[in-house]
Amino acid sequence: MKVKMKIVLAFFLLIISNISHSESAPTLFDANVIPHASVISHEDCFSGVFSSYKSWKEEMVFGKGIKELAFQQRFPESDFNQYKDTVQCYSFVYEVEQHLVKGFVLYPKGLLNEKLPSIIYNRGGNNVNSHTLKFGNLFFYHFPLALEGNVVISSQYGGAMVWPKNFKGNGGVDEYGGVEVKDVLALIPILDSMPITDPNRIAMFGWSRGSMMSLIAVTKTNRIKTLVLGATPVDLVLSAINRPSLEHDVFKRLIPGYEFDKLALLEERSAIYWPEKIPKDISILMLHGTNDERTSIVPVFKFADTMKSLGVNIELKEFPSGSHTLIESKVSVYRKVLSWFNEHL
């Protein structure tokens, strides 16, 4: 069963990690779409190879060797057409302290006179291209949540490998919970500039590394009303012990000064060491599989208990035998997430 699950996950990673908008031609820039001054360009997600289901499928099947039936099962044509017809989706480039960052923003069409809640989605992974957000990733949460009447926005984070080979600009750096947290916080004024957003209803939704980013971010702003966190690494000190490959391939490579001050740098990124910094008026939903082989649930129990003792409205939803991605429970996970946002946002 484990082998089968790994095959399924490998397929999903392959299918969502091979095509991005990084080398497609930009559309004519219209400052009214995302009117904040930091946004310097944007393009419709449904452009280029993504302009039709047929062209996307052909690229994946004939260009990437993906089985046609598997592609159609994961990305039904009916979903593609519904999202294209009802959700406005843009990839965009914005500037943060003189470096450029890529992101996505989605919102329902036809609701331009309403004030909608916003969800900042923080992705997992690190700076390698296969971990960055691709068009296929948006089918997991971005499109469904936008379809429900939310503005959904995401950052690729500075330092991400999302730029074409001939890119000569400053793409920032990824410090795995360091300076690139500013790239997430910079999304708030972008949301504020959009006439369809309600400035009093902003949530954050993170998975894995993205949950860590979310917890750090809420200690630096009072604008976030609620958090949804999946597979949260609340104790990176423990993660370094449990996963030597994570320490070698990510922590040592991305965190500046790691070899000189390892403990302090990991604690700075680990919410279990500073629970008192998290706003007491925020509500938090944590989702975690009991069989998560990448991020142990054990410190999450302790963290949730500590937050409760501090008076924070927090719920930990366990998924027995659940994996790191909880992809095997994706329907129940999405329903829980949607229910939480409907109640708390």
Rank of each mutant, 00 (worst) to 15 (best):
S91T: 10
S91Q: 12
P117V: 07
T86I: 07
Y94H: 08
Y121D: 00
K109T: 02
E77P: 08
V105F: 14
R123A: 01
L106T: 04
N81W: 10
E114D: 07
D79S: 11
D85S: 13
G103R: 05
V93D: 04
E97I: 06
K102N: 03
F80P: 00
Y121T: 06
V128S: 08
H99C: 02
F80Y: 14
N129C: 10
L106Y: 11
R123F: 05
R123Q: 09
K84H: 09
Y107K: 11
I119W: 02
F104G: 00
H99A: 02
Q98S: 08
F75C: 05
N81Y: 11
Y83N: 01
L116Y: 11
K115H: 14
C89R: 11
E77S: 10
S91V: 13
F75H: 07
D79W: 15
D85I: 08
E97P: 00
G110T: 02
T86H: 11
H99N: 04
Q82C: 07
C89W: 14
G124D: 05
E95Y: 03
Q98A: 08
E114Q: 15
P108M: 08
S78M: 11
C89Y: 13
N81C: 07
H99I: 07
L116G: 00
S118R: 06
Q98K: 12
N127S: 13
N126Q: 10
G124F: 13
I120M: 03
P117Q: 06
K84P: 07
S78P: 06
L106A: 10
P76I: 00
Y83M: 05
V87L: 08
Q88G: 03
E95H: 06
G124W: 15
F104S: 03
K115V: 11
D79A: 11
Q82F: 15
Q88K: 13
G125Q: 10
F92W: 12
L112V: 05
N126P: 09
N113L: 15
G125F: 15
N127L: 14
F104T: 01
Y107W: 15
E97S: 08
G124M: 08
Q82V: 07
F104R: 05
G110Y: 13
Y83A: 01
L106M: 09
Q98C: 05
D85T: 10
G125Y: 14
F75W: 12
K84G: 03
N129P: 08
L111E: 06
H99M: 09
E95C: 07
G103E: 02
F80T: 02
S118H: 10
I119S: 01
I119L: 06
F80A: 02
V87H: 09
I119F: 03
Y94Q: 00
E97H: 10
T86F: 13
S91F: 14
N113E: 14
V128K: 12
D79K: 13
R123M: 07
V128Q: 08
Q88A: 10
N129Y: 13
Q88M: 12
Y90M: 04
Y94I: 05
P108Y: 13
I120W: 09
F104Y: 15
G110A: 05
V128F: 13
